[in-house]
Design a protein around this nucleic acid. Structure first.
Lengths: 167, 167
DNA sequence: TTGTGAATCAGCAACGACTGCAGATATGGT
DNA sequence: ACCATATCTGCAGTCGTTGCTGATTCACAA
């Protein structure tokens, strides 16, 4: 599976190689990350971790996630849903984001023709290209929501979705 | 100029048509927005407004900006720099973002071939496509920064840039 | 096994961006 | 001028995230 982070054992080695210590909380977090193919938020990882280690702190989760990002084992991504998401998929790819529930899905496709023309670049040096496709996921597209709103009007969608339809 | 919001007079009419009142603070904000072609943050607009109206509140700035977004006269965009930016360019376009200073520049180009293939869409209904090109603007690319850091290493750029090189 | 110093952790305070609220104020139709 | 109500200000509160700091734990060595 191309979508997962390295195994807990590999990550442990990486940390050790850098002279860093191994702890129970890191092991737990490594295992959780290794077992998901999604784009979890720090909060989500925290909830998961708490099940097996009730005393782990949110601070430690952020710390470890940031460490992994710094080591290039995880990519941080911000799709405007309020909180950062951590993406274990290191291969170049893009994202599909549900405007309603916030679900994020990978689009493992390369668009080689997407580039900024000289005339509009204005001296800019482009290093990465991120494409975000927004719309409705299959679940949310069925329109029937508890509050009965039709939701298609982009002009008034001021709400930050938090349904956590995390698949 | 395709990049600016409607004139203060036009916006005034739009508000009046919707049965809303006109106030000095709205006029001031309309004028400021009409005079910029950039992608200001609420804070930036607030600073500007305060020069002519020292008692205006940040709350009012957010309120008005949100109203304009709701009316479709402004687009809100989040490029992960910490605060939302308000884009007066209503034509479909993309963005160039400087990883160092946060500057945002328009890319008024259409990429008709960018679409999510059926196989990976998984029932998703795509309504918008946003492309963000990240890199360094001409100013920041000259590398010589006060702290002497070279900055090219993407693995440790944990800092939220706030130099406000707002052009 | 025990000691030791550094890395790490938990918990809480603080921060930045933004919004909810409430009382004061201003607008615009009459 | 009058009044209903839209709007404004200022502040407290929320949310996601990070900065501290003292306590704990790890890893290596004796």
């Amino acid at each position: 599976m191309v979508l997962a982070v390295k195994s807990p054992a590999e990550l442990t080695d990486l940390f050790r190689d850098r002279g860093r210590k191994m702890t129970a909380q890191r092991q737990a977090l490594f295992a959780i990350l290794h077992g998901t193919e999604a784009h979890p938020t720090a909060e989500w990882v925290y909830e998961r971790a708490r099940r097996q280690m009730p005393t782990i702190s949110l601070r430690t989760v952020y710390q470890t996630l940031n460490d992994l990002v710094a080591m290039g084992e995880l990519e941080q991504l911000d799709v405007g849903t309020g909180s950062a998401r951590f993406d274990p998929n290191l291969a170049p790819h893009h994202h599909l984001v549900c405007d309603d529930c916030g679900r994020v899905q990978d689009v493992p496709v390369d668009f080689p023709d997407v580039a900024v023309p000289q005339e509009v670049a204005g001296g800019f040096t482009v290093s990465t290209t991120e494409i975000v496709f927004r719309g409705l996921c299959a679940t949310c597209a069925h329109g029937t929501r508890a509050d009965g709103t039709a939701d298609r009007a982009p002009s008034q969608s001021n709400h930050h979705p938090h349904k956590e339809c995390h698949a």
